[in-house]
Simulated scan of single mutants.
Amino acid sequence: MTTSSPRSPRLLLTATVVLAVAGLVLLALPHEPSAPPSSTPPPAAAPASRRSAASPTEGPVESGAPAAATPTEPAGASALPPHGEGIAGDRAIQQALEAAWPADLAAQDERQLLAAGRDLLGADATGIGRAKWPAVFGDPDQAVAPAFASSRFRIQAAIARRDDRDDRAVVHLVWAGADRGGTYTDGRITDLHFTRTTSKKGASTWTPQPRT
């Protein structure tokens, strides 16, 4: 019977050294703690930062709460010019009036009312042309002195519209002027009311109503 030769002590020493080195290498490597298993799915990625204000070209604000409703404005009713804007702001005031009160009179009636309303307001404010309206101002020699200087009086905008009935109308006027003390103010508002009268020949005219 044959017997195996005993292992060489050198071979055993070499194996021991190799195993020891391998163990040191493994100990030196960094280890990450393993995460415990979980059945909950990972959270979704956080949304990108949201804008604090919206711009017409960028779309509405993104937020968790509903945005406040913005009241709609009539077409053309843009922001009115600030006081003291001068003639440059008159067009915006005229457009705002026309947008707020759509036309409801025949073109001929509207022209007649606007002309009468402008003349009447000018006569009342400056005293010029009061003789044309004796029913309103009475005797020109007994009239009250004008409150505004004619050189600094200006009608900024005006429209004429129906006033409840077909035979009544009102002229809305926005104007500017300097009083006798020199104080200049624009954006003044005056409403003049008119009644349609018809002559025996069928011609109709608009007569101003007495101011109360």
Rank of each mutant, 00 (worst) to 15 (best):
E98Q: 14
A67K: 03
G64S: 15
A68C: 02
P71N: 02
A115P: 00
V61I: 15
L114N: 08
E85C: 15
G76K: 02
L80V: 07
S55M: 06
A107W: 01
A107T: 08
L113W: 07
Q94P: 06
Q95F: 01
A54Q: 06
E85R: 10
A79Q: 12
L80A: 15
A107F: 00
A115E: 14
A65F: 08
E110C: 03
L114P: 03
W101Q: 12
L80H: 05
A106E: 14
P56Y: 06
G64R: 10
L105S: 13
A106I: 02
Q108D: 15
A115H: 05
R111N: 08
E110T: 05
E73M: 06
G89V: 04
A79R: 06
P60Y: 08
A116F: 03
E62G: 12
P66G: 03
S55R: 05
E110S: 12
A54K: 00
G86H: 06
Q94S: 14
A103S: 15
A67M: 06
A100R: 11
A75W: 00
I93M: 09
G84L: 12
E58N: 10
G76N: 09
G89P: 09
P56A: 13
A103K: 14
L105V: 09
A100S: 15
P74Y: 00
G59S: 12
A79T: 13
A92V: 09
P81I: 05
A75L: 06
H83V: 10
A77V: 01
A67F: 01
A103D: 15
R111M: 06
G64M: 11
A96H: 07
A115D: 13
P102F: 13
R111K: 11
A99D: 12
P102G: 10
A65Q: 12
T72V: 07
T70R: 01
G64L: 13
S78D: 14
A96G: 08
D90F: 10
E85I: 08
L105G: 12
A116G: 09
A79C: 05
P71L: 06
T57N: 09
G84P: 07
A106H: 09
A100E: 13
E62Q: 15
I87G: 10
A54P: 03
D109M: 03
A79M: 08
P74H: 02
A96F: 02
A65V: 05
R91Q: 12
S55P: 00
P66S: 06
A79H: 04
D90R: 03
D104E: 12
H83N: 11
